[in-house]
Amino acid sequence: MTTKRGRVLAGGTDLFLWLKSGKADVDVLVDVSAIEALRTIDVRDDQVVFGAAVTHAEVAAHREIKALFPALADGCRSVGSPQIRNVATLGGNIVSAQPAADSVVPFVALDAQCEIASSSGTRVVPLEELYEGVGKSRVDATKEIITKIIVKRPDGPSANAYSRISPREAMSLPVVNAASLIVTDGKVIVEARIVTAPVATTPFRAKRAEAFLVGKNPSSLGDLAEAASIAQDEARPRDSLVRGSGEYRKILVKDLVEMTLYRAAERLG
């Protein structure tokens, strides 16, 4: 008996097209999108656990997620079109591994962890470590499956925001997108996470900008703007016939990072 090549199918909005074009080739598809245990959003006191087969539409419409993680709700609302969002899953967007995936960029800003299951057990890995390259995930969909995406709720007061620029609002890839998280001790910033894409082969963390913000007052707009300038300096967007010149997109990095930091600071109140 020959070994059948199997592969996990979730929403299929990418995979089904790849099968048609020959980019993917399988003998067996295992559809996990209706498994009840993968279909829930569990909001706990210390963390939120997303089943990997939750759809983008479900996250975008979820009242508690909109309040807790507006960056994620806004990112999910930017994916494709309503018809795509009703089908496409969180886990699928991660495994498709596009650097600017609109749900992944905010998830990385929120330091999401993924639980991955295979016949040899389960492991938990930071989402940002799951990118091998553009369109290439370290999750091997022929052998393993993402089961959960876990986001810890920060200890101190925190806020997050997401923004993107694209030619139109639906069915349109981002020219640049960005997500920011600010955590404070009630006075000053103790942790910042700034993610922007597509400016690298993975969602890009502007780590120098993040470090700059630690110890700063979140209501200091000058410091937030300075962090955005540092992020602009760190990012290396390429010239793209589809998305625009690198030079233009570098400016957008500053604008979008600044916008998300301002918005997050505003949400801190």
Partner: peptide, 16 residues
Amino acid sequence: LFDGKPVNSCIIPVMK
């Protein structure tokens, strides 16, 4: 409409 929700039936594998 798929259980009441709009979907693109061209990218739905039929067994879904």
